[in-house]
C-alpha cells in the first residue's frame, strides 16, 4: 500500500509534537482521520508513482500543492481541493444558472464559475411539434424559449477548448425554473451525488446545483403530457400558490441558507433534518445566526441518532 509521505510539519502535527493553533471542529487535522491540509508550495509527495490532479503541479520530481486545501487521493491521482474556489465543472454535473445573453443559436449562462457556460440551441428540449425555422426569426424564437434573466437547471455535457462548459436541457427534469426562490451557497458545500433533485415531504422541491445555486420551489409533478407541450415547458407563468406554500418555500430557503452560513455540507439528509429542527422557530427567526447554529447542531444530533438506529 503506497503511502504519501507527509511533509515534516504535518508529521509533527500528527504525532502531536507541533504546537497547534485552535482546535477547530471544522478541520480534522492530525491524529484522527487522514485529512492532510496543504498550502501553496508545499510538497505532497516525492513518490513518482502518483499522478498530479487539480490543485497540484510537479516540480523537480515532487508533487507540490498550488492551493490551500485538503489532499484527495483517488487511486494514483492526487489532487488538492481548495477550501473555496469558483465552481469548476465536470461532465454530468447538475447546475442551476441564469441566462445572461442571447447569441447566434446559443445562450450564455451565468453559473458563477470561471466563465459563463453556453447552452446551445441544439442542446435544449424541443418537443416534436415545434418547427425550428432557420430564418431571421430565430432570435425571436429563441427568446420564446429562454430570455435574459431566466433561471434554468441543466447538465454539463461537454467543455469547449477554453474550458467553458456546454450545457444541455434535453431531459424533462431540466429546463426553465419556476414557482420558487434561489438560494446561493458555496459550490464547495454541494457534493456530487446521485440525488440533485430532491422532493421533500413538505411539498417543496429542491434542485441542488453543484455550482452552489440551489432552487427551492413548490412541488409540481411532472406528467408525460408536459414533455410534448412547448408552451408549458417554456412558460413564464408561476403556478398559483397559497400563503402557506410560500411560507414553506421560504422556510426551506432559510434552512439551506443556514446550512450555507454554517459552512455545512448540503445534501438531502442535511436539509431534511435541519428542516425538522427549524420547525421550532418562526421562518424569519432562521435569519439570525444563533438560531442557525442551533438548528444545525440539532440536525447533527438527529442525524447521528438516526445513524445509530
Amino acid at each position: 500500500m503506497l503511502e504519501i509521505s507527509l511533509p515534516p510539519r504535518a508529521q509533527a502535527r500528527r504525532a502531536g509534537t507541533a504546537a497547534d493553533g485552535d482546535d477547530d471542529d471544522d478541520v480534522d487535522m492530525g491524529g484522527a482521520g487522514d485529512r492532510q491540509l496543504v498550502t501553496p508550495g508545499e510538497t505532497i509527495t516525492t513518490d513518482p508513482a502518483f499522478m498530479r490532479g487539480h490543485g497540484t503541479f510537479t516540480h523537480e520530481q515532487a508533487l507540490v500543492a498550488s492551493v490551500a486545501g485538503v489532499v484527495e487521493r483517488v487511486n494514483k491521482l492526487v489532487s488538492v481541493r481548495p477550501l473555496k474556489s469558483r465552481y469548476n465543472g465536470e461532465i454530468g454535473d447538475v447546475v442551476v444558472g441564469r441566462i445572461t445573453e442571447l447569441g447566434p443559436k446559443r445562450w450564455k449562462v451565468d453559473i458563477k464559475g470561471r466563465q459563463d457556460a453556453v447552452l446551445l440551441l441544439s442542446s435544449i428540449n424541443l418537443p416534436g411539434g415545434v418547427q425550428r425555422r432557420k430564418s431571421e426569426s430565430d432570435e425571436l424564437q429563441m427568446r420564446s424559449f429562454f430570455a435574459e434573466g431566466d433561471l434554468v437547471s441543466a447538465e454539463v455535457q461537454s467543455f469547449f477548448q477554453d474550458g467553458g462548459a456546454s450545457l444541455q436541457t434535453r431531459n424533462i427534469k431540466y429546463g426553465k425554473l419556476r414557482n420558487g426562490s434561489l438560494v446561493m451557497v458555496h459550490s464547495a458545500q454541494i457534493k456530487r451525488s446521485k440525488s440533485h433533485f430532491i422532493v421533500l415531504s413538505c411539498g417543496v422541491d429542491v434542485v441542488l446545483g453543484v455550482n452552489g445555486y440551489v432552487w427551492v420551489s413548490k412541488h409540481v409533478p411532472i406528467t408525460p403530457e408536459m414533455e410534448s407541450d412547448p408552451e408549458g415547458l417554456y412558460s413564464n407563468q408561476n403556478e398559483p400558490m397559497t400563503e402557506s406554500e410560500r411560507e414553506t418555500i421560504a422556510r426551506v430557503c432559510n434552512v439551506i441558507a443556514a446550512l450555507g452560513r454554517q459552512n455545512c455540507e448540503i445534501h438531502e439528509s442535511a436539509i431534511v433534518y435541519a428542516y425538522d429542527a427549524s420547525l421550532d422557530y418562526a421562518v424569519k427567526e432562521l435569519l439570525k445566526v444563533p438560531v442557525q447554529e442551533a438548528i444545525v447542531s440539532q440536525a447533527s444530533a438527529l442525524l447521528r441518532q438516526a445513524a445509530t438506529q
Partner: peptide, 11 residues
C-alpha cells in the same frame, strides 16, 4: 491560512 482553512463539514 491553515487556521482559516475550514472545509465544509458534515452536519
Amino acid at each position: 491560512v491553515r487556521k482559516a482553512c475550514k472545509t465544509p463539514r458534515p452536519i
